[in-house]
């Protein structure tokens, strides 16, 4: 590449630039696209899912459900422990023989 320009000249080469114009049928094409999209209901669903509000709602719901499950778990656990102790005591009181004990009397 010939060194005929300086980097400064190249960086300033957009001075005096005019705006580029789109094709003259842009509005017609936009309207056609809008009609096409409105006739496809699945796109409306996709657009709803893609909205940040929807993502925030889903995240909040997950947090609430998680919180509820964690709270429930901590409250249920001691009760379950108590229940298992009661069962164990009752079981012991019923004179069940220990399967590991032999029936032989000394």
């Amino acid at each position: 590449m010939q060194k005929k320009y300086t980097s400064e000249e190249i960086v300033n080469s957009l001075e005096g630039v005019q705006r580029a114009e789109p094709s003259p049928f842009l509005f017609t094409r936009v309207m056609a696209r809008l009609e096409r999209e409105q006739s496809r209901p699945e796109l409306a669903v996709y657009r709803l899912i893609a909205r940040p509000v929807f993502a925030v709602a889903i995240a909040s719901l997950l947090i609430i459900v998680n919180g509820y499950l964690i709270m429930n778990r901590t409250t249920i656990s001691p009760a379950t422990d108590e229940l298992s102790q009661v069962v164990a005591v009752e079981y012991a009181q019923q004179n069940h023989s220990n399967p590991y004990e032999t029936n032989e009397q000394p």
Partner: peptide
């Protein structure tokens, strides 16, 4: 339209892609 097209064209550097994205921009605006 020229504001949108010119801006998009600067990023995409391709006339056909810029036309397509310009239409997309106006659909989103609508």
């Amino acid at each position: 339209q020229s504001l949108v097209f010119n801006t998009v064209l600067g990023f995409l550097q391709n006339r056909e892609d810029a036309e397509d994205v310009t239409q997309d921009v106006f659909v989103k605006v609508y």
